[in-house]
Design a protein around this nucleic acid. Sequence first.
RNA 1: CGGGGUGUGGCCCAGUGGUAGGGCACUCGCUUGGGGAGCGAGUAGUCGCAGGUUCAAUUCCUGUCACCCCGACCA
Length: 573
Amino acid sequence: MKFSQAFIPTLKETPSDADTISLKLMLRAGLIRKLSSGIYEWLPLGLRVLKNVEQIIREEMDKIGGQELLLPALQPAELWEETGRWNLYGKELCRIKDRAGREFCLGPTHEEIITDIVRRDVRSYKQLPLMLYQFQTKFRDEIRPRFGVMRAKEFYMKDAYSFHATEEDAGKYYKIVFDAYSKICERCGFKFRAVEATTGTIGGSFSHEFMVLADTGEEEIVSCECGYGANVEKAECVKESLEFRVESLEMQPLEEIHTPDMKTVAEVGKFLNEKPEKFIKTLIYLADGKPVMVLVKGDCEINEEKLKSHLKATELVLAAGETVEKISGAPVGFAGPVRKDKILIPIYADFSVENIINGISGANKKDYHLKNINIGRDYKPTEIADIRKIKKGALCPRCKKHELKFSRGIEVGHTFKLGTKYSKAMNATFLDVKGQQNFFIMGCYGIGVSRIVAAAIEQSHDESGIIWNESLAPYKAIIIPVFPRGLPSVAYYGKVKDVCDRIYEKLSQKYDVLLDDRDERAGVKFKDADLLGIPVRITVSEKTLKENKVEIKYRNKNSVNLSDIEKVLDIVI
RNA sequence: CGGGGUGUGGCCCAGUGGUAGGGCACUCGCUUGGGGAGCGAGUAGUCGCAGGUUCAAUUCCUGUCACCCCGACCA
């Protein structure tokens, strides 16, 4: 491609509403433009990168037996009602009505559609396993779009679905997809980590997220040298040993203390001169509308994802003030597990409260707290479980030897072991070897294609611009003719141009190459080349042509090398 | 949705109760020619939109919309 004819509108200045480095660079390098909040246009250069990512994914999917198809973005509500997700998905689902008033949504994911196809056309175990995938624009009405294409209302994604006759096969295949995803990340040049994750609205038995490591990432992950890795939402907490309990003080009698207007652990702790570790933090949640009391140690926090999955609830919200008052008999801030007049809501305690001797909590009475609360003697949790957030300094739940390392990442892929969640809901069955009807065992696997583009930039850039990995680069090389100082000698002007054209012709047979034939000064061309992040820069000028050489510079290195004109083809990439 | 902020040529921003300005970009000319050139000339804005106050509003007030930031969702 000749630069003079290419639509690559680069910007010297950064649009002021750009929040992250990748977005700034994508705008400046002319990869994308913003149409509206969370809605972006992919310009030719950006699309080239997107297509490169797409092709890498396609190759890896095909290698593991995937077959590409294309599903509709517009989907009838009925299918979503079958799985209950029409209601469950909430406001994030873009809903529309047709002229007849029939309800549709713009697909945020395609489990319903694919399951519908398979239940209609797959009858026998002989047709299994089956792996189908597509690339498509997905729609999610994000609460707050941000970080450019990384969290957009409309984004490009590869989603894959596999169908199996047996659990064993589904399990084996999950591992194969997992490896393919790792391969994709490697081919994109990522520093990444696959971690255990929560399954969210997709559901299923377990899942892994593929995280591109970047300090600017939205996700927080923990990892251990033993190999364990998890999203903090999912990370298991190690149960404290009960030894701590034995060394502790004797149980003291319960004592009520006047704590006017002190509602938080910090306030009461300061007043009583006690550490947060002494507190039994008490919260009241509504799980699918039913109130539950939840306890956690004062210096810890509830992990709502864990609680939700422990309760098998689909919706979990903190109870409103009036509800709390009705249940505990006191305003928010004075709830506690010790209840004289039995309030009949279940108590779920985190492991962390088990060891609290002579603890402190609300007295279920306005302006009063209780001291010397002891588990077993004063209250009995309905269940004790791991429902707290992991904290810095925590031990690895697997090896229990090392301290977990905290880092940040960008989630570019997510694999789910779905099981029969969708096939059951949609009555999708096949006949097995024995002629018996079974539900398909499913897996689903997503990769944010557009997000990968941003993640790649987030992970690889410098002050001057993007530094593309060769596999993603929109052009592998850029040829820059530089004309000499003073009046250009006609001969050399011609020769520089001639050499550029020759290299361009030759290289173009093998790679996508950009020839910067614009009538611009050298500085402008260099700046743009750096901004665009083209891996190889070939500078052709009178200076080096005297020795029959051209200049080679790799974007990811500082040094500049000279090469014989004829050898350029061998050197590049 | 709650809290905060911003809307002025394509981009970055200044400014004012008397109908608008700089830099960059763009067009033309001359000079220039290895890291976003210099000089000169020029094109381009109903000052987000609607209402109100006023002799007069881009400026003050009210509303509204859009966008951005901080919190609850996800590839």
